[in-house]
Amino acid sequence: MADSLLKLDGVSFAYRGGDALQDISFEIQTGEFVALLGENGAGKSTLARICNGLLKPTGGVVTVGGKDTRRVKTSEIARDVGFLFQNPDRMLCQNTVRGELMFGLEFSSVPPEQHAARCDEMLSVFSLDGERDPFGMSRSERQQVALASVLARRPKLLILDEPTTGLDYRECMTIMDIVSRQNAEGAALLMITHDMEIVADFARRVLVLSRGKLIGDGDMRGVMRDRALLSSASLLPAQIPDLAMRLGGAFGEAFTITDMVKTVATLKEEVRV
């Protein structure tokens, strides 16, 4: 069995106003790509903060790499868990992109002699100019700098809180391609998103949260086909799976545009024959 990087066992959390999470249990293994879905206010961001120790559960146990988050400092958990917030401006605090990446590495377990190489690698991956001022960059570029700073540490688990919000399609794909590559190299991913197209294209497993309860946990295709489950979390399936389900028959298995094109091509061949 693969290593369990993150384990939540009967986790509950309450703010002053009331319960935010109730009895949540799941595990994430090395190399998984998990999407966390749910309506606004379902508790997704709270759950993400529970997963890296920023919030301590009021009930149940959260372990990251076998360490109970209640007994370990958040800054120590951060050595294994990278967290990208929605707002990159809360992360950026240095005058240059290079400075920003080096600042992030300063608090990591990466040996100092490797910092410059890691920094150069990330500048190259994201095609960023290391001498630019991050505060003079566009929202998308600032988001990329923040992500580069997180990825430079090579975290075992990467938590992304709506990383593509406010980005256009090209910028969104740039970020998704990079995080997919990290995932292919072994990092586990937990991504909060409202974008069902991204879920259909990239995620392999989906967690569905509604009003603080985990109401769905399964492989992406199964969840995407479960209209009742998605509907109870105020979600709709992505357009291609939705179209495929409506067409049925040979289209039933299509989940991406590539799948759909292949199916149409096959049917065209069959008609020709």
Partner: peptide
């Protein structure tokens, strides 16, 4: 956000905490 990237704001050393806080005046 900074704690999540490993900056030790959860340290008990007051002076270290103050030193770490200074760069945050920028954002």
């Amino acid at each position: 956000t900074q704690t999540a990237r490993g900056v030790e704001f959860d340290t008990k050393n007051f002076f270290k905490k103050v030193r770490l806080l200074l760069p945050l005046c920028v954002p």
